[in-house]
């Protein structure tokens, strides 16, 4: 098998049988992750192909590009893989998280403000531990803000520094 080339974008293979680079997840595995963890049906990603640049960073891209292209970005950063627990990006959650039906914690206005400012805080949650989609009500509809890591009764904001705001 070939190894991953850090400067190039490569398509994520459809299945195990198509896998040319060791350790690269397949499209089916990626779709299963979103469906099993967050209840997002695979059809939501129908227009998107997943690409890898660098080890373990997947991008979701709906346009056309040649295999191995060396550009700065293809679509949006989407999912960090190649670690024990896969981690969705803030951008992926904001773009696709409306379709989630599980492991979504909807927080009140004050908790949402502290979360987007990057703060960790205690929350009431009796579901699974790990990466949750954190959402709030905006204009009367639930809207995902980003990813929070829930451990030991605490919600740890995963909002990147550059996206943190005091709203």
């Amino acid at each position: 098998m070939r190894s991953n080339v850090g400067e190039q974008f490569s398509r994520v293979p459809a299945t195990d049988a198509d896998r040319a680079v060791e350790g690269r997840p397949t499209r089916n595995e990626v779709l299963s992750f979103w469906e099993d963890r967050y209840g997002i049906p695979p059809g939501v990603f129908e227009a998107h192909r997943f690409w890898e640049k660098g080890s373990g960073k997947l991008w979701a891209f709906s346009g056309d590009a040649p295999e191995g292209t060396e550009v700065e970005a293809l679509g949006i950063t989407f999912l960090r893989v190649r670690q024990e627990h896969w981690k969705p990006t803030t951008d992926a959650v904001q773009r696709f998280g409306r379709h989630a039906t599980q492991n979504v914690i909807t927080v009140d206005a004050e908790t949402a403000r502290r979360f987007i400012a990057g703060e960790d805080q205690p929350v009431d949650w009796d579901g699974e531990w790990g990466y949750l989609i954190v959402a709030h009500e905006l204009a009367d509809v639930r809207e995902p803000i980003g990813v929070g890591l829930y451990l030991h009764g605490e919600l740890r904001s995963q909002i990147p520094k550059g996206r943190q705001r005091s709203v």
Binding site: A60, V71, E72, D91
Partner: peptide, 17 residues
């Protein structure tokens, strides 16, 4: 630009330098 395009959820975009 990358930060702005990602925030806006533009997924059909190739960014090139």
């Amino acid at each position: 630009l990358r930060t702005n395009a990602q925030r806006c959820g533009v997924t059909n975009l190739i960014v090139n330098s």
